[in-house]
Amino acid sequence: MKPRARWMLFAAACLAQWGIAGREIVRWERTRRQGTLFRFQAAPADPVDAFRGRYVAVRLRENSVPFDKPLPGGTRVYVEPETGEDGYAHFVRVYRRPPADVSTCQACVRYFSDNRLYLHLPFTRYYMNERLAPKAERALFAQRLRKGGPEMWATVRVGHGCAAIEGVFVNGNPIEEIARANKNP
């Protein structure tokens, strides 16, 4: 490859890298600032990701939406959450394209059963500091043993077809506080 072509390709690659990284930051920052806040019931656990570090895996209780006909597994759809009488978010409608004036997030169809679409949702991880995450898990385990299961939820910003977890709470307290309060090493 000639030096000029090499430099042009390198410049294009650098621009693409900045473009993708910048687009990701803008996209998620916009969701964090402008998205609607919902509260999803959750059940956390603590695994590790080699690239992104430790996280609390958020197993959402709400992972389906009413729908009248089956869609193939893997189909990408947009789902609209709505806060129910219990104070938690429930998915109420499905769209094939994101509507402009409704807070929706993208999801992936897993399967169809009993007039409901079961979904893979994009907000399943809450990344934590590598020292805090195991403490949080131990604290949650201890609470589960004592009280038969604490009330947990995740607050999620939803908007522009994206969704990002903002915080995870246990009996109303942020999970970081629970972890810091845990005296176990």
Binding site: F10, I20, W28, T31, F123, A164, E166
Partner: peptide, 29 residues
């Protein structure tokens, strides 16, 4: 990965695909 960590996002295979496509030009440059 840091961007995904910051916003508590997990894009799974899309992350791998983006990473690989962004590094492909280095093979030639």
């Amino acid at each position: 990965a840091l961007i995904e960590q910051t916003y508590h996002v997990y894009e799974g295979t899309t992350f791998t695909l983006k990473w690989m496509l962004l590094t492909l030009p280095l093979v030639y440059t």
